[in-house]
Amino acid sequence: MELWIGITLVSAFLQNLRSTFQKHLKKSMGTTGATFVRFGFGMPFALTYLAILHFGLARPLPSINGTFALWAAVGSMAQIGATFLLVHLFSFRNFAVGTAYSRTEPAQAALFALIFVGESVSAGTLLAIAISVSGVMLISVARTTLSPVSIITSIFSKTAGIGLASGALFGLSSVAYRSASLSIAASLPAPDAIMQASFTLVVVIVTQTVTMLIWIILREREELARIAKAWKPAIAVGFVGATASFGWFTAMTLQQAAVVKALAQVEMLFAFASTVFFFKEKINKLELIGCLLIVLGVLSLLAWG
């Protein structure tokens, strides 16, 4: 098994865990606060990973260049916007539809990679992405009332628009992070995917933390008290989120962002499994079909990607 595959599977599991923690935090603070926690409390762990690589394992640090700075900035802001929109979706009663559309991230990442960096994917990979995305969207709306009218209505709903925007920004951030990480390889004695990923993560997460902290102080200062009060679960979100991000950045340094994010759809299977086995909820036909489509998409991706 290729290294990026194992890293992606672990990262998907950790992201599912982080999302569970983050939904819990949304009950005790606003959207901005719950978004900030992912970055602010993840920053110390990201710095720790980089310190271990550099000081503990004597791996050299890469140098920042203009290309890196541009893509890191684009990725940072895009991910803040994407996370904010995704957390905001939890405020809607019918957030499942919006969440489903946010899962179009792999397809949108493939489009952005083609537009901005000229990176194309094979027809087989595109088909695998389409299959897995269809499965994820089917699971997301499986417990809603489906009819021709409701499907058409959902496409033009506010939550669908927010979900698509979130998916687009996540897709853009993925492409930006891969481009940033690859741009600093030449400054190292030899390419080092793990160091490139860790360094990129630190620059990005520091940028995100400082940007959001300034915003909160200027516009939503009351969130600071809520964040401080929820410091224990916030640390869990930070640790799991930073570790997952470290994995994502490494995987996307080794493989195209769209391909990594397509495989990452297995996160939905992890979420679904926890719902079934831990909360003892029954499976309906649409959810079962959705799971099978995800598995088929992932297997197709590994065969054709």
Results as ranks from 00 to 15, higher is better:
80 I>N: 00
80 I>Q: 04
80 I>Y: 09
82 A>I: 08
83 T>C: 10
84 F>Q: 01
84 F>Y: 14
85 L>D: 00
85 L>R: 08
86 L>Q: 13
86 L>H: 11
86 L>E: 08
86 L>C: 07
87 V>H: 01
87 V>D: 03
87 V>I: 15
87 V>A: 02
88 H>M: 13
88 H>W: 13
89 L>W: 06
89 L>S: 03
89 L>A: 03
92 F>Y: 14
92 F>L: 10
93 R>A: 15
94 N>V: 14
94 N>W: 11
96 A>H: 15
97 V>E: 06
97 V>G: 04
98 G>I: 05
98 G>Q: 08
98 G>D: 10
99 T>K: 13
99 T>A: 15
99 T>C: 04
100 A>R: 07
100 A>Y: 10
100 A>M: 02
101 Y>D: 00
102 S>R: 09
102 S>A: 15
102 S>P: 11
102 S>L: 14
102 S>H: 14
103 R>Y: 14
105 E>V: 11
106 P>T: 07
106 P>K: 02
106 P>N: 07
108 Q>H: 09
108 Q>A: 08
109 A>C: 04
109 A>V: 02
110 A>T: 08
111 L>N: 05
111 L>M: 14
112 F>E: 05
112 F>N: 05
113 A>I: 05
113 A>H: 04
114 L>I: 13
115 I>C: 08
115 I>Q: 11
117 V>R: 09
118 G>M: 12
118 G>R: 07
118 G>Q: 12
119 E>Q: 14
120 S>I: 11
120 S>P: 11
121 V>A: 07
121 V>P: 05
122 S>F: 07
122 S>M: 06
123 A>S: 12
123 A>F: 09
123 A>L: 14
123 A>R: 00
123 A>W: 06
124 G>D: 05
124 G>N: 01
124 G>P: 07
124 G>K: 00
125 T>L: 12
125 T>Y: 13
125 T>P: 12
125 T>M: 11
126 L>S: 10
127 L>F: 14
128 A>V: 05
128 A>F: 05
128 A>D: 07
128 A>T: 04
129 I>Y: 02
129 I>A: 00
130 A>T: 13
130 A>E: 01
130 A>S: 13
130 A>K: 00
130 A>F: 14
130 A>R: 00
131 I>Q: 00
132 S>Q: 03
132 S>D: 00
133 V>K: 00
133 V>S: 01
133 V>W: 02
133 V>Q: 00
134 S>R: 04
134 S>P: 01
135 G>Y: 10
136 V>W: 09
137 M>Q: 03
137 M>N: 05
138 L>A: 07
139 I>V: 12
139 I>R: 00
139 I>W: 03
139 I>S: 01
139 I>N: 02
139 I>L: 10
139 I>M: 12
139 I>Y: 04
140 S>E: 12
140 S>V: 04
141 V>E: 03
141 V>N: 02
141 V>G: 00
141 V>K: 03
141 V>R: 06
